[in-house]
Design a protein around this nucleic acid. Structure first.
Length: 261
DNA sequence: CCCTATGTTCCCAA
DNA sequence: CTTGGGAACATAGG
């Protein structure tokens, strides 16, 4: 569930807490996460987001990358001694502790040397300046459904399933439409709604439909603003038609068959 | 009990 | 090259 707005939320919350802190040690609780080199003694210089990945840049030229995948979450503790269930790793630093918790064990941690890994997605981030003409160009001659196209992380770093459904509903575009056939006016609507939806969700600290929690265990609030996601069988807020759910590229896709054509 | 569903991404094959 | 499907894993619900 952590998509761009959720990771951005963690990024902002974490930045205020850990920048400048000295790492005591990184403890691997679940061997599937490790092994990782020692981070003891390094200082955290910055906290950034790259797509759906969180990057803790260290003062020694390395960086710790955290990808939460499906069910991963980060929890900050200042005094707690024990571990919550499904805790996979613990980053202990002066003044507090950052726990990686993940029921399904898909989340990943990695330590990479900064500079060795360019971030090809950085310029395609919907919150950092989105070039929709570039998207339109890339979509040319593609038959891939627009919904799947929007989920391609190389094209749109950080886009996830929930927000792809929401953006297409607001833009009144059928999610099954071949991406190469979209009109200029439709790309313009995507350009308008995509950053708007994501930044509003960031302002709400993300969408909690099942288990998303922020760094302090609080659910987000954007679920109250969802237009179609999770609303199968309920009336469309715009036209009253019944919202339907189909599968596109193996992913649950919610849309209004009347508004989105 | 058994089958299906779930936010992400990688890998393989048609 | 493009596109679709299954797998990685654990748990919840019909």
């Amino acid at each position: 569930m952590p998509e761009l707005p959720e990771v951005e939320t963690l990024c902002g919350q974490l930045r205020g807490l850990v920048v400048g802190k000295r790492i005591d040690r990184l403890t691997i609780v679940d061997d599937r996460i490790g092994p990782l080199p020692s981070l003891s003694g390094s200082f955290i210089r910055t906290v950034a987001r790259s797509g759906k990945e969180l990057v803790l840049e260290l003062d020694d030229g390395r960086a710790l990358y955290i990808h939460l995948r499906m069910t991963g979450r980060l929890q900050w503790h200042e005094h707690r001694e024990d571990l919550l269930p499904h805790t996979r790793a613990v980053l202990i630093m002066e003044g507090g502790r950052l726990d990686l918790i993940d029921v399904r064990r898909f989340a990943t941690l990695s330590v990479r040397t900064k500079g060795l890994c360019a971030l090809p997605s950085a310029e395609n981030d919907p919150l950092k300046g989105l070039d929709v003409h570039l998207l339109e160009e890339k979509a040319k001659n593609k038959k891939l459904p627009i919904k799947s196209f929007l989920l391609d992380q190389r094209l749109l770093a950080g886009m996830g399933n929930i927000y792809a459904c929401e953006v297409l509903h607001l833009a009144a575009i059928d999610p099954t439409r071949p991406s190469g056939e979209l009109l200029g006016s439709e790309w313009a609507r995507i350009a308008f709604f995509l950053p708007s939806v994501l930044s509003r969700s960031v302002a709400c600290r993300g969408t909690t439909v099942s288990d998303w929690r922020d760094l302090f265990g609080r659910p987000g609030e954007y679920q109250h603003h969802l237009q179609v996601y999770g609303r199968e069988g309920e009336p469309c807020y715009r036209c009253g038609e019944v919202i339907r759910r189909i599968k596109i590229g193996g992913r649950g896709t919610y849309f209004c068959p009347r508004c989105q054509h």
